[in-house]
Design a protein around this nucleic acid. Structure first.
Lengths: 350, 350
DNA sequence: ACTTAATATGTAAACGTTTCCATTGGGAGA
DNA sequence: TCTCCCAATGGAAACGTTTACATATTAAGT
């Protein structure tokens, strides 16, 4: 019985190149992965020629076995489809590509089970590094990475609990809440509501803290503050908007653009037009923010810089595991729109 | 001189597990990758125990060397950030995950050079399969995949030239253009413009063909048709909108949602309100489409089904390379909004 | 007790690379 | 002519798995 040519998936191997070029596999390997090694130019050329002819591409998996890098980085986010993350991903991928890495993008969908599954798979692939936005800011799965010596950077969500040191890149949630609120306060508003996400994570708390702080600076104690939190959906946005007493409230901070959609649609339906009836500042800059008229005033997070910073932090960590962890927290800026109007007393209507 | 413990990246190997469990590596391997093989339950348990204790995770790269699958699929799109693709990706990833694959998402950014680079890197990784939306519908790089026996499925962009057979999943561009136009025609409009992308790819041509066909069916010859094409950007959208003679035109088909943004912003600025002054149907359903008021009437492509179909087609192809290629073309549906008004003569204004 | 057949485990050769080290063939210096 | 050395190449072990095959153990049949 003829022995089948086994040829795993029919791939061309270094051996084939060696045979074709009439040399040893060692030589071929030197040509492709050891620039320094001196070889007769003529020989080097011959090998390259042969390789090109039969279409040889080095097997990265085999190569990684011998201690070479794997060539794969991973980004695990909790909300794929959220433009904030998408934009950062684009930057990360771009920098990674320059360094010769392929990036695998994963979505935990804010689910710890999924996240764990994903990380286990990534570890099985022996990825070279990982950028992780942990679901619910939980450190559970981060420990997996640590245990397996995968260099990693935490993105956007700082960890709860007393987690050991780790590199972090995110934006200043407190400041974003503060900035949004301050903008409304400076326009003269006092009855300002904060509508946001009800997740038990630092990001949310800090934004609310920023709101509270700004309010207090203007002499508005807790009793005069109004914070509504609900899940991340249009319906939740609607629910919150319904609860608002728009006769009393003159301005709102939209703490998350996902539920913001529901709020604004509700406003539009009910004729609560901005900025005449209510002033609005939103945290986040989804694509639709620039399409609405009047245009929304938004707090912009520097996604581009953040993505770059995350990628660089990871690369730094990979190159030198001893390196001090980095922590970079970015400030947000106000993206001026037309949804904030100066507050007018309107003749003692209350 | 003490020889350093080499321990590539410090990973725990099958050998460590064997030592810990006091058995051979063969046994450990059987435990983890050969369900059938009978082992004394007590032994199996002991191995699992040992593995768990020292945190063993199988090295997928090494495993793949022996002919096992690599566990990686790739999706290469030309426009990352375009929600149309993002939504399909979500589905693909979800199905792939069920089958135990990790998916790497790549963005060629409509650049053939990039695309080639990406594919070469993916081939080096010996991915198990690939879903590709080829930049500019060019088949150049697709051949790379074929040459390296990577099972693949072409997504959304059919190939130009006389390409050999390949599996394809996309939507019916002709029908989408036809449906959009027909909707306006049925509302009584006659002066209808088509604004779209000027790329030399079948997708674009077919949409325009759909427009033309619909127009002709209503007795409107080429001279009464109006097709404007430009690049994919808001500015381009503005440019096209400026060129429109809105005194003559009573309705527009927005052929691509990216430039559509520019068009609509321009309309808003110039007070060309819809549907009173101009009726609008857009091909595509970006997030912002549901935020505008009046809400846009859109042609919806079934992204979810398409993503699933693509993933399934790929898996089918991977499991049986002999299998006949599949070609699935999905129809679009109208997503009713309020941007189309019945055409009224308005008293011989012209 | 002795073969036979099952059952349970281990040995070792691959997979495609990388790289240490050995080997070869000159040419220069003596 | 003979060393010696250097430059250029190849042999072979290793990386962490899988798996065909060999071995060792046990039970059953004579």
């Amino acid at each position: 019985m003829m022995k089948q040519a086994p040829r795993n998936r029919g791939s061309v191997t270094i051996k084939d190149v060696a045979k074709k070029a009439g040399t040893s596999i060692a030589t071929v390997s030197y040509v492709f992965s050891n620039e320094e090694r001196y070889l007769r130019p003529e020989l080097r050329e011959r090998v390259l020629q042969a390789a090109a002819e039969i279409g040889y591409v080095k097997n990265a998996a085999a190569s990684s076995l011998k201690g070479k890098r794997r060539g794969i980085l991973a980004v695990v986010v909790a909300q794929f489809g959220n433009t904030f993350f998408t934009r950062m991903c684009v930057e990360i991928v771009s920098i990674a590509r320059q360094e010769g890495y392929v990036v695998t993008l994963c979505n935990s969908d804010e689910d710890l089970q999924q996240e764990r599954l994903i990380l286990e798979r990534l570890i099985a692939q022996r990825i070279d590094g990982c950028i992780l936005c942990p679901a619910f800011s939980r450190s559970d799965n981060v420990e997996l990475l640590r245990k397996h010596n995968v260099p990693f950077v935490v993105l956007e969500r700082s960890l709860e609990q007393e987690a050991p040191e780790y590199s972090f890149v995110g934006h200043d949630n407190f400041q974003s809440g503060y900035l949004a609120t301050k903008t409304l306060l400076l326009a003269g508003h006092r009855k300002i509501a904060f509508l946001g996400w009800d997740a038990p994570i630092p990001n949310v708390r800090e934004r609310v803290d920023g709101y509270s702080q700004a309010m207090q600076e203007h002499g508005l104690a807790e009793s005069e503050q109004c914070v509504l939190l609900d899940e991340l959906s249009m319906d939740a946005g609607r629910r919150m908007a319904e609860k608002l007493n728009t006769d009393k409230i003159t301005a709102v901070v939209l703490g998350h653009h996902e539920s913001a959609k529901g709020v604004l649609l509700y406003f539009q339906e009910k004729g609560v037009i901005w900025p005449e009836r209510v002033s609005v500042v939103m945290i986040g800059t989804p694509e639709w923010a620039e399409m609405l008229r009047p245009k929304l005033t938004c707090v912009k997070r520097p996604e581009q810089e953040m993505g770059q910073a995350a990628a660089q932090a990871l690369l730094a960590r990979m190159n030198d595991s001893q390196q001090r962890v980095q922590s970079r927290v970015f400030s947000c800026t106000l993206q001026q729109g037309h949804s904030v109007a100066a507050f007018k007393q309107e003749g003692e209507k209350s």
